[in-house]
Computed example of a mutant assay.
Amino acid sequence: MLAILIFIFIVVLALELPTLLRQRRYHALAVFLFFYLVGVYLALAQFYGWNIYNPIETLLTMLGALPAPGMEALARWACV
């Protein structure tokens, strides 16, 4: 299964990389490589069962520390 995954990565890279280099689209190449590497990491993390960082958990923790508005404030916003 890992061999198939690596083969797919190589085929995608072989199809996209020469075109971007030939057309000298270096900004598009940088964006493509960024998302390609993120995709490779996520695919390997899924395959091997690695823990994947979830930014939503950090966001919820930060939002949970904020004071909750009172019901009066919510009622005022709803009436506007």
Score class of each variant (00 low, 15 high):
residue 18 P to I: 05
residue 40 V to C: 07
residue 3 A to D: 15
residue 41 Y to T: 08
residue 18 P to K: 07
residue 4 I to W: 12
residue 43 A to F: 03
residue 36 Y to T: 01
residue 57 E to Y: 07
residue 48 Y to N: 01
residue 37 L to Q: 04
residue 41 Y to N: 04
residue 2 L to D: 06
residue 22 R to T: 14
residue 55 P to W: 01
residue 36 Y to L: 02
residue 76 R to D: 15
residue 3 A to H: 10
residue 40 V to L: 06
residue 25 R to Y: 02
residue 19 T to K: 14
residue 46 Q to R: 13
residue 80 V to S: 07
residue 12 V to E: 02
residue 13 L to D: 09
residue 19 T to M: 12
residue 25 R to G: 02
residue 78 A to R: 11
residue 55 P to F: 01
residue 76 R to K: 14
residue 22 R to I: 12
residue 43 A to S: 09
residue 16 E to I: 06
residue 77 W to S: 07
residue 80 V to G: 04
residue 79 C to W: 13
residue 74 L to F: 11
residue 72 E to R: 11
residue 56 I to D: 03
residue 50 W to C: 01
residue 21 L to F: 06
residue 7 F to C: 10
residue 58 T to P: 00
residue 54 N to M: 03
residue 23 Q to S: 13
residue 19 T to E: 09
residue 75 A to T: 15
residue 67 P to S: 05
residue 55 P to T: 03
residue 79 C to V: 13
residue 46 Q to H: 10
residue 28 A to N: 12
residue 62 M to Q: 13
residue 7 F to W: 04
residue 69 P to I: 08
residue 76 R to Q: 14
residue 45 A to F: 04
residue 76 R to T: 14
residue 26 Y to N: 10
residue 73 A to M: 08
residue 36 Y to G: 00
residue 41 Y to A: 11
residue 45 A to W: 09
residue 15 L to K: 07
residue 21 L to R: 09
residue 61 T to C: 07
residue 30 A to R: 12
residue 2 L to I: 14
residue 22 R to P: 01
residue 23 Q to N: 14
residue 32 F to R: 00
residue 80 V to Q: 11
residue 75 A to D: 14
residue 56 I to L: 13
residue 54 N to R: 06
residue 74 L to Y: 11
residue 20 L to S: 03
residue 36 Y to H: 05
residue 67 P to Q: 09
residue 52 I to W: 03
residue 69 P to Y: 04
residue 71 M to G: 11
residue 2 L to M: 11
residue 37 L to A: 13
residue 73 A to Q: 13
residue 14 A to D: 08
residue 27 H to W: 12
residue 9 F to T: 00
residue 66 L to H: 09
residue 31 V to K: 09
residue 39 G to P: 02
residue 9 F to K: 00
residue 44 L to V: 02
residue 68 A to E: 14
residue 62 M to I: 15
residue 77 W to Q: 14
residue 36 Y to F: 15
residue 64 G to H: 08
residue 3 A to Q: 14
residue 59 L to V: 12
residue 15 L to N: 08
residue 20 L to C: 04
residue 7 F to M: 09
residue 65 A to D: 10
residue 58 T to F: 04
residue 12 V to K: 02
residue 12 V to C: 04
residue 50 W to Q: 00
residue 71 M to V: 11
residue 34 F to M: 12
residue 10 I to Y: 03
residue 75 A to K: 09
residue 55 P to A: 02
residue 23 Q to T: 06
residue 45 A to Y: 08
residue 67 P to R: 07
residue 54 N to S: 04
residue 40 V to K: 00
residue 28 A to F: 02
residue 8 I to C: 11
residue 27 H to F: 15
residue 35 F to T: 00
residue 7 F to G: 12
residue 8 I to G: 07
residue 48 Y to L: 08
residue 3 A to G: 13
residue 63 L to P: 00
residue 6 I to M: 11
residue 72 E to W: 12
residue 50 W to A: 03
residue 29 L to V: 02
residue 35 F to S: 03
residue 16 E to N: 09
residue 8 I to D: 06
residue 34 F to S: 11
residue 24 R to P: 02
residue 56 I to F: 09
residue 61 T to I: 14
residue 79 C to S: 15
residue 17 L to H: 07
residue 19 T to F: 14
residue 17 L to Q: 03
residue 79 C to R: 12
residue 77 W to N: 08
residue 69 P to T: 05
